[in-house]
Design a binder for these strands. Structure first.
Lengths: 72, 72
DNA sequence: CGTTAAAGTGCATTATATGGCATTATTTAG
DNA sequence: CTAAATAATGCCATATAATGCACTTTAACG
């Protein structure tokens, strides 16, 4: 997943759960400013920050082998 | 995946590919010091840094829904 | 043992993420 | 359109990630 996809995933998930940025910031203990920056694609969050956010949204970060034989 | 698992995954992958930290640092354009710090569990890398490293190792970062019904 | 390669660490500097606050823009209701 | 809620931004101080360099540690090998 590229940067933008990650952002999109987080944002969509947040909206699906009907949580505002403000609320998510509180729940995850991430500054509102930081969260906003991230969601608007202007940040380069720390792994810890991303994890805190993902966590609250019921998601987790993982690493997977890229599919080399990218058939399209 | 927790922090330590991520680190472990990266490290194992690197070793499986028989690449030294030094070489990986060059290939990924991440400072050697940064890579070392990360692998020895002392850092809190930036998403970009993690991505650069993962990329060279043929891996990608992804977000997935946590399994709530964690049957054990 | 000494040698060598790879990994880990201390220190200092620079770049940048974090986060608060105020302000502006955008979206959503009424 | 107006008002209220939510999101985006600029400014700015502080914390810390990124990085280089030198040095130490560890592991493998003769």
């Amino acid at each position: 997943m590229h940067f933008n996809e990650l952002i999109k995933t987080i944002k969509e998930r947040r909206e699906a759960l009907q949580v505002t940025q403000e609320r998510l910031a509180e729940l995850s203990n991430v500054g509102l400013r930081t969260l906003k920056q991230f969601e608007s694609g202007k940040g380069n969050p720390t792994l810890l920050t991303l994890q805190k956010i993902s966590d609250v949204l019921g998601m987790e970060i993982c690493l997977k082998i890229k599919n080399i034989t990218t058939n399209k």
